[in-house]
Design a binder for these strands. Structure first.
Lengths: 339, 339
DNA sequence: TACGGATGTGTGAACGTGCACACAGTAGGT
DNA sequence: ACCTACTGTGTGCACGTTCACACATCCGTA
């Protein structure tokens, strides 16, 4: 199964020959340097005529820099479909990288096979740095990045993350505590939580913030654990809570998508929101304003997170050693109709 | 602003020296060939000890193949946030490429600056082929791909697409006609459409399918044109239709997100669905089952589209000349509660 | 003994680029 | 007349890899 070589493409040699100069001169018109007006004109004409494009792979090899940054999305399967956040982070990162004339290349990891291949890709000199999104605890990618010594930034910070690797995120615990406290302040007495993604720092921290806010009133019976931040999990989680304690009158959902699902389960059960039950979410994604009633939630500055992550990677590529390693962005609470 | 060189990494030379053999032998244990058991063992030991990873850029340069395929998402800004389709297509493509041991790299194009940089990236030998999603009519990327001669597949087919470039998509026109006809069959008499994205083939074709189905009953007054396939456009479009003709009793929304927005506007106006008005969407995305009532819609096999696109690119990379160029996937209608 | 095949290893060249260096011509100041 | 600075151009080398080739050894068989 030998493959035919791709068609031959023009090189600096061809351009040099066509313009009657040497490779060096062509290189100089491309990258700057002293070139006479005639030579420049002849070379530029030759370039447009044959449609020459520099071979970036060769340039990367020589320069040891690719002007590209990897954006690694781990297990995005449900994230892409239910969580608009990852898309916003991506667009924020792309905008920032674009400004610095760097190419963002997104790599999707869904299987073990992907992990290994992406590891090779990151190590292979195709990217100068990487942004890693939604890593779980003990994620093999952490090891890969650590040993590689590649400039990298994590979005969120798995507890076992190497201390030297910078991250950008939000104060999940503090935000969860704050919004739960405001739920308490509205007079709710039996407050539960639909906790999700407890294998990620975000999930763990949101739960412990909830716990902090309730203090002595906390009861593990009123916490429904679900695997994902998605709509379906919200439906199931809410049903479970209603079953365990029909007198429940407040719920903190670990994400807006979960809250939307919870809303559906509450509608099924004939409970009104915010009349019978106060409901708050997390993310301030497009879900929040689509729901009926609109969700009170924690605003997550997704686009900015992406942008900051990109800047931190670029600074590392520039040789800077980042300290302190972590950076947290503010998360204002948005109070709407659901609580 | 000179940047420090990245840290020096081990090469085949280092491994060869450490194992007491030559570069050639190291290459053979990496890529297959006759190697003695002792040599192999020594080399493998050296590789794991220093954590050697082959430099893919160098390999790409020599082999003229990168084992990577670009996934170009054009103006995904609202798509990522409101349309789950693009994520599904991406995951479908990644799965198929992964099986063939190819790396999918996604490139996001949002600005003219991005277009140019992505063009350079695609031409630079970093990818062996490309999948292009959601190109608009007269998109500059079409020109870039055509002149480049890079193996490529479009998802959807802008009317001005080069005839030789394969595409994969769905029969937007036929599907739109079919679902509109079923809406007619339920007894609706004043049927309107919220048409979107009329600068894309999908938008144009869905509108003309709608027109076909209504025949003489078609009235341009009952078509609300909105720019995007998103929720907000749905709200606006539906308000417009209600204003133009309060007796409207059926609506075909050009996407599920639009239908969801329309549902919101109908709720505002106090109309019941499907009681007062029958509503159908397009995509069968997660929106469809989240809405209340759940949407009758056209199922779009997004994941499969991605998968087929990937396979078509891989076949071209393998040297095959694809003919016929286009491939359409079936789109069953899913009949739920909204009509 | 001589030969051919299978197995195992080392060497040189090439992929396309950028940079350091060498070199040449010109102009201006001492 | 000489030195220096500036502009302009060509050449060789290196980046790290793979492949073709040459060479070496061993074995079985004519």
């Amino acid at each position: 199964m030998t493959r035919p070589k791709p068609q031959k493409r023009a090189t600096v040699h061809d351009i040099a020959a066509a313009a009657g100069v040497s490779r060096g001169t062509v290189s100089r018109v491309l990258n700057g340097g002293y070139v006479s007006a005639e030579a420049r004109a002849a070379i530029e004409a030759a370039i447009t005529e044959v449609g020459y494009v520099p071979n970036t792979a060769a340039r990367t090899l020589k320069m040891r820099r690719s002007q590209a940054v990897g954006f690694v999305a781990l297990e995005p399967h449900s994230l892409f479909l239910d969580d608009p956040n990852i898309g916003s982070i991506m667009l924020g990162a792309n905008a920032a990288l674009s400004l610095a004339d760097h190419q963002m290349v997104s790599l999707v990891v869904e299987s073990a096979r992907d992990t290994e291949r992406v590891g090779r890709y990151l190590s292979g000199g195709f990217v100068d740095g990487a942004i890693i999104v939604s890593a779980r605890t003990h994620d093999p990618i952490i090891q890969v990045i650590s040993t590689l010594g590649l400039p990298a930034v994590f979005v969120g910070h798995p507890p076992d993350l190497d201390r030297n690797i910078p991250f950008v995120g939000i104060d999940n615990q503090g935000s969860a505590r704050a919004i739960t406290e405001r739920l308490v302040a509205t007079g709710r007495r039996r407050i539960g939580m639909i906790a999700a993604a407890l294998d990620r720092d975000s999930g763990i921290d949101r739960l412990s913030g909830f716990r902090d806010a309730l203090g002595a009133a906390y009861s593990s019976e009123l916490v429904a654990e679900v695997p994902l931040y998605d709509y379906g999990s919200g439906v199931k989680g809410m049903r479970l809570l209603l079953e365990r304690d029909p007198s429940i009158d407040g719920v903190f959902a670990a994400s807006d998508a979960i809250a939307a699902g919870a809303l559906e389960a509450l509608r099924e059960a004939g409970r009104s929101v915010p009349g019978d039950i106060g409901l708050v979410g997390f993310d301030d994604s497009t879900w929040a304003v689509r729901c009926q009633p609109q969700l009170s939630t924690v605003h997550q500055p997704a686009k900015e997170i992406g942008s900051v992550a990109a800047q931190l990677v670029l600074r590392q590529i520039g040789g800077e050693h980042l300290t302190p390693a972590g950076q947290l962005l503010p998360t204002p609470i948005v109070w709407r109709d659901s609580a």
